[in-house]
Write a protein that binds this DNA or RNA. Structure first.
Lengths: 174, 174
DNA sequence: AATTAAATAGACAGACTTGTCTGTATTATT
DNA sequence: AATAATACAGACAAGTCTGTCTATTTAATT
């Protein structure tokens, strides 16, 4: 069995992503991770601290998965379009739970700056991802915005229909 | 002074919008609305029930404000562009708190269906709003998606820069 | 084998949550 | 003026929350 710290992060990933941040308590996390509470506070100084760590991990995991998924083709335009297939892929895997970063954004207050910064930097990286594929500032932003709303709208309506629509819109503008 | 029910809804609007749904308790609402707890439960059978009522009100308020704001011009294309100015207007008024509907979407679970339905129907209406202005299904969706992400990204970065960018993107596609 | 480090269980504090309840006071209607 | 409806204050239940603490056990290192 993996280390307590690892088990905490694993369970937090599952629970934060499926139930939301505020609706998931430390007690549930440690109980399902089979870790004592004192051990939890040995590794994380607060719940917000765990949240930051979770988001950092999620960032790594998500970008690795995106890179993997989109690098099946060499053509930059094909890669952009496959990024939208990646949304569908993730929706299937995660039951339309949307973007962890945007979900948590809606839950935090202005005081939780350290969490906000991780979210901002994640989205910045996503924007850079598209910019590297189109080499045109405004077009990259355009695609980025459509990508973002494709995630959210598919979460809202629990359907990939809008992702396909976004994809064909993008096909027309690149 | 207005009725207890009215005062509850007023305070709930302010608090849900500024602190989020899960972070706002019944006790705070009734305390700031100067209403007894028994009175609260005479008008609303649960917190979720209040949430539905709040969203219905917000829907009305928000659409009235949008209609008002965009109807200063007759030209449909001008109206679409002014809808993006409306985002800036609301961001200024509400300190980049984003969309109440999408914020609450991130906070609820799959069980809270009545809340989800109100959110879905609000967004459907927004889509119809654009479709009435462009009379082209795919283009309307395109604008709708850019509008949605303009709200979210300006919330995330607490800046209207991305709204202006969205606006110029829309200018080029209509 | 002895020492140090890490993990355990779980009690506890203090504050919060939603929702129910009792009893009283105010207001509106007949 | 008497009745009925509404609102009031606030205790209470039963649970949640984060975070601290003690005391014990397991594991790793010297």
């Amino acid at each position: 069995m993996s280390s307590p710290r690892e088990r905490i992060l694993e369970q937090a990933s599952i629970l934060f992503h499926h139930q939301g941040y505020n609706s998931t308590g430390i007690n549930q996390i440690i109980s399902e991770a089979n870790v004592a509470k004192a051990s939890f506070y040995q590794h994380f100084k607060s719940k917000d601290d765990l949240c930051v760590e979770f988001l950092n991990r999620r960032h790594q995991y998500w970008f690795d998965a995106l890179s993997d998924f989109t690098s099946k083709t060499e053509n930059p335009k094909e890669r952009i379009l496959s990024a939208f297939d990646f949304i569908i892929h993730m929706n299937d895997r995660e039951n339309f739970r949307g973007c962890s970063f945007l979900n948590i954004l809606s839950e935090i207050s202005k005081e939780q700056e350290s969490i906000l910064r991780v979210i901002q930097s994640h989205k910045n990286d996503l924007r850079v991802f598209f910019r590297q594929l189109v080499n045109n500032e405004l077009l990259a932003t355009h695609i980025y915005l459509l990508f973002e709303s494709a995630i959210i709208e598919s979460q809202l309506f629990e359907s990939n229909e809008i992702v396909d629509k976004s994809k064909s819109i993008v096909k027309n503008i690149i």
